[in-house]
Amino acid sequence: DELEKRVKKIARKLNLSLDQVEEWLKRNNNDELVEAVKRLKKK
């Protein structure tokens, strides 16, 4: 979905793993995208 695409884009842009992106999003209080990261990690 759109949020998952955004997460992947962030990960690529910042050259981070999904775990690192998740931490980064949590620090930025971006719950919506944190949920998207969790969905991606399950895939």
Rank of each mutant, 00 (worst) to 15 (best):
D1E: 12
D1N: 11
D1V: 08
E2M: 13
E2T: 10
E2K: 12
E2F: 11
E2Q: 08
L3C: 13
L3P: 04
L3S: 07
L3E: 09
L3D: 11
E4W: 08
E4K: 04
E4L: 06
E4A: 06
E4I: 12
K5E: 15
K5D: 13
K5I: 12
K5Y: 11
K5N: 13
K5Q: 14
K5C: 15
R6P: 00
R6H: 09
R6M: 15
R6G: 02
R6A: 15
R6Q: 14
R6Y: 14
V7K: 03
V7E: 00
V7I: 10
V7T: 01
V7F: 03
V7M: 05
V7D: 01
V7Q: 00
K8C: 15
K8F: 13
K8A: 14
K8R: 13
K8V: 14
K8Y: 15
K8I: 15
K8M: 15
K8E: 14
K8D: 07
K9M: 14
K9V: 12
K9C: 15
K9I: 13
K9N: 14
K9R: 14
K9G: 10
K9T: 12
K9Y: 15
I10W: 06
I10Q: 01
I10G: 00
I10S: 00
I10A: 03
I10P: 01
I10M: 07
I10L: 14
I10E: 01
I10D: 00
I10C: 06
A11F: 04
A11S: 05
A11E: 00
A11L: 14
A11D: 00
A11K: 03
R12V: 10
R12F: 12
R12W: 13
R12H: 13
R12N: 12
K13M: 13
K13D: 15
K13C: 14
K13W: 13
K13S: 11
K13E: 14
K13G: 05
K13Q: 12
K13V: 11
L14D: 00
L14Y: 15
L14W: 13
L14P: 00
L14E: 02
L14R: 04
N15Q: 11
N15Y: 07
N15E: 04
N15D: 05
L16N: 01
L16W: 13
L16M: 15
L16D: 00
L16A: 05
L16C: 04
L16E: 01
S17F: 08
S17N: 11
S17Y: 08
S17K: 06
S17R: 08
S17L: 06
S17A: 07
L18N: 01
L18F: 06
L18V: 03
L18K: 02
L18Y: 08
L18C: 08
L18P: 04
L18I: 07
D19H: 07
D19A: 12
D19V: 06
D19F: 05
D19T: 08
D19I: 05
D19E: 08
Q20T: 03
Q20E: 14
Q20A: 10
Q20R: 05
Q20I: 04
V21C: 05
V21A: 03
V21I: 13
V21M: 14
V21G: 00
V21L: 15
V21R: 00
V21W: 03
E22A: 07
E22F: 08
E22P: 02
E22Q: 07
E22R: 05
E22C: 07
E23V: 09
E23A: 12
E23W: 10
E23C: 10
E23G: 05
E23T: 07
E23K: 09
E23M: 07
E23P: 00
W24D: 00
W24A: 01
W24C: 08
W24T: 00
W24K: 00
W24H: 04
L25I: 05
L25G: 09
L25F: 15
K26G: 06
K26H: 09
K26P: 00
R27T: 10
R27F: 11
R27D: 10
R27N: 11
N28R: 12
N28W: 13
N28D: 06
N28E: 09
N28C: 10
N28T: 13
N29M: 09
N29R: 09
N29G: 15
N29W: 06
N29H: 13
N29P: 05
N30Q: 15
N30K: 15
N30I: 15
N30S: 09
N30G: 09
N30F: 15
N30L: 15
D31Q: 14
D31S: 13
D31G: 10
D31E: 13
D31A: 11
D31L: 14
D31Y: 14
D31M: 15
D31R: 09
D31H: 14
D31P: 13
E32N: 07
E32T: 08
E32D: 12
E32Y: 09
E32R: 09
L33C: 05
L33V: 02
L33S: 01
L33M: 08
L33E: 02
L33Q: 03
V34E: 07
V34C: 09
V34F: 07
E35G: 04
E35D: 09
E35S: 06
E35N: 07
A36R: 02
A36K: 02
A36C: 02
A36I: 08
V37N: 01
V37I: 11
V37E: 01
V37K: 01
V37W: 04
K38C: 10
K38R: 14
K38S: 04
K38V: 08
K38A: 06
K38H: 09
K38T: 05
K38Y: 02
K38E: 06
K38M: 06
R39L: 06
R39Q: 08
R39H: 06
R39I: 06
R39D: 03
R39P: 02
L40M: 08
L40E: 01
L40W: 07
L40Y: 04
L40N: 02
L40T: 01
L40I: 10
K41C: 06
K41W: 05
K41N: 05
K41M: 08
K41R: 12
K42L: 09
K42T: 08
K42E: 13
K42H: 10
K42Y: 06
K42G: 08
K42V: 10
K42C: 15
K43A: 08
K43P: 03
K43L: 09
K43Y: 11
